[in-house]
Amino acid sequence: MTERLAMDVVEEPEAVVIRLAGDVDMTNVGQLRATVSQVAAGTLLVVDVNEVGYLDSAGIAVLFERAKRGRLEVVAAPGCPIRRVLEVVAIGQLATLSDSRPDD
């Protein structure tokens, strides 16, 4: 069955912040994709993945798509489970991979 993906979208003056929680796989990546594609290219999209337990190439693809099209910042603390995954795919080359947000 499909995992429901918890997405919390907050529009800030400077950016749009999506807080993800749960697992992102091929079954529910479409939700993510849809939400992400709505953010304008010029707007900074901040995706907080600290609560994400599973992220594979499906979800990574969405991030890369976004990173190629517009501004993207992925927030993953050093202790975050999928931090290593993000490092392995070198998302930091196209987007900003940060440990935390300034006001966290």
Binding site: M1, T2, E3, D23, D25, M26, T27, G53, Y54, P81, I82, R84, V85
Partner: peptide, 27 residues
């Protein structure tokens, strides 16, 4: 696809049960 989550859960539980630490398990 619908089987994936469950499969993951099972695998995860097995790993934890047998002393694989969280980070290694996630990976």
């Amino acid at each position: 696809p619908r089987e994936l989550a469950g499969l993951r859960r099972q695998l995860c539980a097995w790993l934890h049960q047998h002393g694989v630490d969280g980070q290694s398990a996630t990976e």
